[in-house]
Amino acid sequence: MENQSRDALLAESEESPVNSEARGDPPSPFLDGQRYYQQGFYKEALKRFEKIKDTDFQAMYQLGVMYYDGLGTKKDPERGVEYMNKILNSDSPEASHLKFAAAYNLGRAYYEGCGVKHSVEEAERLWLTAADNGNPKASVKAQSTLGMLYSMPILKDMKKAFFWHSKACHNGNLESKGALGIMYLYGQGTCQNSQAALEWLRKATELGNIYAQGHLVEYYYTGKFYSKAAAVAKRATANDDINMLAKITDCHPTYLAKGAAMAAFYLARCLQLGRGTEKNKKAAEKYYSKACHLDPVVASHLELAANLGRI
């Protein structure tokens, strides 16, 4: 589940632990548990949150995350869902700043069928609640997730996908910045606009979105800007740890792998043919192999295009 400790919980606290300690005051019970949580001492954090969960909604929220994901305790997704429902359905003003995040997490639980019966319809409803029509103070993650949901065959509606990626993008979501660039590039849910596509792909690339980097490499390669294609591809393939990159960028690992595979394949093509870089058959083979390892489907599709003379 989405952990709010990275931003919202501490931001919503009346004071930070730093300010509290500067005055010599003891940290609040929640912040004491939160410190253990952030340092990875989940069992200690769990004990402290359990003590105050009936009077502190932030502690209840963190417990929901911990039970759902099995942090410091055995996985208990039903219990995690229970806590998120309590927050979402509470009339207490102290729960209000957590409701968007709770709705996002409940939507994820329904989509995954974990702790509740699988239901795409219920996931969609909860994510729409969490997204709050693009409110920047709502769940930006839910806004981006809706963009991805409406891009999938089950609920495919590219205009809705473009709407939600636009909202999330302008609210700072990195994954949606890349998605928006791709949608402009191919005219998905909006009019095709190469200038806007390039602008958003570059922005997303600069911030570390590997999926956007892969598409930017393709854009440069098909436009015969081979030196630029090779340079961006080298950066996109420099780190093979997709899971680590996913945590750093908060982008889905599946899409990061696809982007890295695209970049690796086009870099191999440049090395094989001496386009934008010096010919190097051995290095080309290495990057073809890397593309296949990262995403066999993407590599196979690009191989077919190369054999047909399309790239």
Score class of each variant (00 low, 15 high):
residue 15 E to F: 06
residue 211 Y to S: 12
residue 202 R to K: 14
residue 294 L to I: 14
residue 174 L to K: 04
residue 112 E to A: 07
residue 310 R to C: 08
residue 116 V to S: 10
residue 89 N to L: 12
residue 36 Y to S: 13
residue 201 L to S: 08
residue 201 L to K: 09
residue 211 Y to L: 14
residue 54 D to G: 13
residue 101 A to T: 05
residue 163 F to C: 06
residue 290 K to N: 02
residue 191 C to M: 11
residue 16 S to V: 10
residue 169 C to M: 14
residue 311 I to A: 04
residue 187 G to E: 03
residue 309 G to S: 10
residue 143 Q to E: 13
residue 296 P to K: 01
residue 49 F to H: 08
residue 35 R to Y: 08
residue 112 E to F: 01
residue 241 D to I: 09
residue 135 N to A: 11
residue 177 K to S: 10
residue 148 M to R: 07
residue 206 E to F: 03
residue 250 D to P: 03
residue 59 A to D: 05
residue 299 A to P: 01
residue 264 A to N: 00
residue 138 A to Q: 05
residue 80 G to D: 06
residue 58 Q to W: 10
residue 182 I to K: 10
residue 243 N to K: 14
residue 26 P to Y: 01
residue 232 V to M: 06
residue 48 R to Q: 12
residue 19 N to A: 15
residue 223 G to H: 14
residue 132 D to W: 05
residue 24 G to I: 04
residue 293 H to P: 05
residue 88 L to P: 06
residue 300 S to P: 07
residue 122 E to G: 14
residue 6 R to C: 06
residue 19 N to K: 15
residue 118 H to V: 00
residue 150 Y to N: 07
residue 93 P to L: 09
residue 267 L to W: 00
residue 296 P to C: 08
residue 228 K to W: 02
residue 77 P to K: 05
residue 115 G to F: 06
residue 18 V to A: 10
residue 284 A to N: 03
residue 271 L to N: 03
residue 162 F to Q: 08
residue 181 G to E: 03
residue 57 F to L: 13
residue 309 G to A: 11
residue 290 K to D: 01
residue 259 G to R: 03
residue 229 A to E: 00
residue 27 P to W: 03
residue 27 P to A: 08
residue 117 K to D: 15
residue 135 N to F: 02
residue 14 E to W: 09
residue 52 I to A: 13
residue 32 D to G: 06
residue 5 S to K: 07
residue 282 K to M: 08
residue 175 E to A: 15
residue 293 H to K: 15
residue 191 C to G: 07
residue 109 A to E: 01
residue 153 P to V: 04
residue 97 H to G: 06
residue 33 G to D: 03
residue 256 L to T: 10
residue 124 E to P: 03
residue 309 G to H: 02
residue 93 P to F: 04
residue 84 M to T: 09
residue 53 K to H: 07
residue 300 S to F: 01
residue 68 Y to M: 11
residue 222 T to Q: 14
residue 67 Y to F: 11
residue 102 A to R: 04
residue 192 Q to C: 09
residue 153 P to C: 04
residue 36 Y to W: 04
residue 114 C to Q: 13
residue 221 Y to W: 08
residue 193 N to K: 10
residue 130 A to S: 04
residue 158 M to H: 06
residue 19 N to G: 09
residue 70 G to T: 13
residue 161 A to V: 12
residue 100 F to G: 05
residue 291 A to Q: 00
residue 36 Y to L: 13
residue 201 L to A: 05
residue 173 N to T: 00
residue 237 T to M: 04
residue 287 Y to R: 09
residue 179 A to S: 15
residue 232 V to L: 08
residue 176 S to Q: 02
residue 104 Y to F: 08
residue 191 C to Y: 07
residue 11 A to R: 15
residue 291 A to Y: 00
residue 259 G to M: 03
